[in-house]
Simulated scan of single mutants.
Amino acid sequence: MSLLEQLGATRSGDTGALVYGMPQETADGSVIVTVARTGGILRPVARPVGVFVVKDGQATWTAAVDATRIAMFGQTIGLVSATLALLAIVRRPPWPDLSR
Rank of each mutant, 00 (worst) to 15 (best):
V90K: 06
P93L: 11
R43M: 14
G8K: 09
D56K: 13
A46D: 09
P44D: 14
R37A: 09
G16L: 02
I70H: 03
A46L: 12
D28T: 02
T76I: 10
G8V: 00
Y20F: 14
A59W: 06
P93C: 02
M1Y: 03
M22A: 12
V45H: 11
R47M: 04
R11Y: 06
P96W: 10
R47P: 00
L4E: 00
P96C: 13
S99W: 11
T34E: 15
D14H: 03
L87M: 06
R43A: 14
G40I: 06
S2W: 00
L4K: 09
A9C: 07
T26L: 12
G13S: 04
V45D: 06
V54W: 02
T76M: 12
Q24N: 09
G39F: 04
R92C: 05
L18I: 02
M22S: 04
F52S: 07
G40W: 05
P44T: 15
T76P: 02
M72N: 14
A85H: 07
V19C: 09
G57V: 12
S12N: 07
I89G: 01
G8S: 02
P94E: 07
A88E: 05
L79S: 02
L86E: 04
V31Y: 05
L42A: 12
L87H: 07
A82T: 08
V49K: 06
A82H: 10
A63K: 12
D97C: 14
F73K: 15
L98P: 02
Y20A: 01
E5N: 08
Q58I: 10
D66V: 09
G39K: 08
V49E: 07
I70F: 05
R100T: 14
T10N: 03
T60Y: 00
A59L: 04
L98H: 13
A46V: 07
E5C: 04
G40P: 01
A67M: 10
V31W: 08
W61Q: 04
P94M: 03
Q6E: 10
V65W: 00
T60F: 05
G21E: 12
G50A: 01
G13V: 04
I70G: 01
T10S: 11
A64D: 03
L87C: 12
R11F: 08
T26E: 14
P44K: 15
A9D: 01
